[in-house]
């Protein structure tokens, strides 16, 4: 959130309240990586947020009406989630500490999942532990 709020600094409070509605994983990653490239660009965020919100609504309608008729696995729809997140992940790997954090997070997830399968705490533990490596390497690199 820190990276996103940096990009929203010059916005009015009411505009920020509106923009908060558009925050999701996709708009977050695309915007923060754009902000890193070209500086604060709230309009870019707005575009991304509207695009994802509208397609989410439309696909929900399609899913609700056709969901029982089609087999998601047969059409590869179950691949949509990992495919999207893999692409977003690559977009956020911009330096060596970020890459190392990803490797550690992957190893931690594999270990935790192997030891305690389908455990909802895995994501939280990885989210707390792995960033320390990124922090350590960033500080060392300076």
């Amino acid at each position: 959130m820190a990276q996103l709020s940096d990009g929203f600094h010059q916005l009015k409070r009411s505009t920020r309240f509106l923009y908060a509605f558009g925050i999701n994983d996709e708009s977050f990653v695309l915007s923060t990586s754009k902000f890193k490239e070209i500086g604060p660009a709230p309009r870019f965020f707005l575009g991304a947020a509207i695009t994802f919100y509208v397609s989410w609504l439309l696909s929900s309608i399609v899913g609700a009406s056709l969901g029982n008729v089609i087999d998601p696995v047969a059409y590869g729809l179950d691949l949509a989630f990992p495919v999207t997140f893999a692409a977003l992940l690559v977009q956020s790997i911009t330096n060596y500490p970020a890459f190392a954090t990803m490797v550690l997070a992957a190893l931690l997830t594999i270990s935790l999942e192997a030891l305690f399968p389908t455990n909802q705490f895995t994501i939280i533990i990885v989210g707390i532990v792995a960033p320390f490596l990124g922090l350590f390497l960033s500080r060392k690199g300076r």
Binding site: T101, A105, E113, V126, G134
Partner: peptide, 24 residues
């Protein structure tokens, strides 16, 4: 803290992708 927070989304997205790949 700011640097630490930068790496939180990366860690969580990695975990989400890896969990999708591993099927119990």
């Amino acid at each position: 803290i700011k640097t630490y927070l930068q790496f939180v989304p990366i860690s969580i997205i990695t975990a989400l992708v890896v969990i999708q790949i591993m099927t119990p």
